[in-house]
Amino acid sequence: MMELLSMGGYGAYVWSCFVLTAIVIAICEWRARARHRQVYRDIEVRVKALGDNG
């Protein structure tokens, strides 16, 4: 286990790359979802406001 973590002395470099990649992909997914929710909500608000009038 320690061997895996240390990566022959390159542990800090190797693991920071893999962690960074995971974080960036997670950010991409999270931002895509957040934007979808926001767009959907804006439409919902507008549609309901129009619905009351008409």
């Binding site: 990566m7 022959g8 002395g9 390159y10 542990g11 470099y13 190797v14 790359c17 893999f18 990649t21």
Partner: peptide, 13 residues
Amino acid sequence: GDAFRIIYVHVPS
């Protein structure tokens, strides 16, 4: 050494 393992995220990106 083990530093080459970075290619597993670098090349796909």
